[in-house]
Structure formats: C-alpha cells, structure tokens
C-alpha cells in the first residue's frame, strides 16, 4: 500500500469516528471538535486518493488549503455563537438534545 492510499484510509477512519462523535455528543463544543476532525479526515482523503499512484498533484493541495480556510472561518463563527449561547442560556447543549 502506498503512503497516499494510507492517508486516504486513515482519513476515512477519522471521518467515521468523528461522525459517530458528532451524532452521540450533545455538548456543542464536542460537536464542533468532531466536525473539525471530520474536516481533517476529508482533507486526507482528498489529497491521498488524488495522489494515489499518480504522484504529487497541486490541485487537491490548493483545494485543501481553501478548505482549511473555510473550516477555520466556520469554527470561528461557531465559537462566537457558542459563547453567546452559553452566556444567555447557561447550558452547553441545544434545547431538544437534552443535557450533556
């Protein structure tokens, strides 16, 4: 197995684990972390699969860079909302999800 393919497989495992975490946790911060891990896994798959057997490819790398920027912005927005939510409601999970 090439290193690139290994990255892709690891990425898939990460996505699966993170999806599980995203679904079972109700604490919003944990969900946000799970989302970030899922994003990392996706990026690994993106680069790994694309380069598997074809050598380095600038396009997926550029895509992942963009993706990281997007993920960082999303995380920033989520954290702002989360802090506001915690400040107004004094809970860490959303109403219909029960407590964590």
């Amino acid at each position: 197995m090439s290193a690139d393919r290994l990255y892709a497989y690891v990425g898939a495992v990460l996505v699966a684990l993170a999806l599980y975490a995203f679904l079972v946790h109700t604490h919003v911060l944990r969900r946000l972390l799970a989302f970030n891990v899922m994003g990392g896994g996706t990026f690994l798959i993106l680069v790994g699969l694309a380069q598997d057997g074809r050598g380095p490819d600038p396009v997926p790398q550029a895509l992942v860079l963009t993706g990281i920027v997007v993920a960082v912005s999303a995380t920033a927005l989520a954290i702002i909302l989360l802090r506001r939510w915690f400040a107004t409601s004094q809970t860490t999970s959303l109403p219909e999800d029960g407590s964590s």
Binding site: A50, P60, L63
Partner: peptide, 12 residues
C-alpha cells in the same frame, strides 16, 4: 462535509 467528501472521490 458530506458534499466535500463526494468532491474528493470525484477528483480522485
């Protein structure tokens, strides 16, 4: 993210 995963597979 689900969409992006699909994009990754498409590019591959």
């Amino acid at each position: 993210l689900a969409y992006l995963l699909g994009v990754a597979l498409m590019y591959a």
